[in-house]
């Protein structure tokens, strides 16, 4: 396979992955706006968003200038996933226990 064809296919894959990522972000936002209660909204938030960011990251990965940039992107995704899951747990816990809801 020659070089231009390879680049073209890579670009196509990148574009498709980014489109998929955007789709999951849209699903997350639609869930945030449509779902009836707080816990269900948290579901939409954590799952759809992490997956969406992962796909976007995979799409941008071939454009990375060097290896460190790619590793940093992976690190960013892992951090967002940990922060998202922990944050969702904290928000849900706060809502279950009902503490401080009237204060802030």
């Amino acid at each position: 396979m020659d070089q231009p064809t390879f680049g073209l296919i890579l670009n196509l894959i990148s574009t498709l992955l980014a489109c998929g990522g955007a789709l999951f972000f849209i699903a997350g936002t639609v869930g945030l706006l449509r779902l009836p209660d707080l816990y269900s909204r948290l579901h939409a938030l954590t799952k759809a968003d992490n997956l969406g960011l992962g796909l976007i990251m995979l799409a941008v990965l071939p454009q990375a200038p060097d290896l460190f940039f790619a590793l940093k992107m992976l690190l960013l995704w892992v951090l967002v996933m940990i922060a998202g899951a922990t944050g969702a747990h904290l928000i849900a816990k706060r809502a279950v226990r009902g503490d401080g809801e009237d204060i802030l």
Partner: peptide
């Protein structure tokens, strides 16, 4: 309606913002 909902939306903003920044 609740502050927790606002917080969640702000979190969504952060995640999407990262995606926009990457792009």
């Amino acid at each position: 309606p609740s502050p927790a909902d606002r917080m969640m939306a702000a979190q969504l903003l952060g995640t999407s913002g990262i995606a926009v920044l990457l792009l």
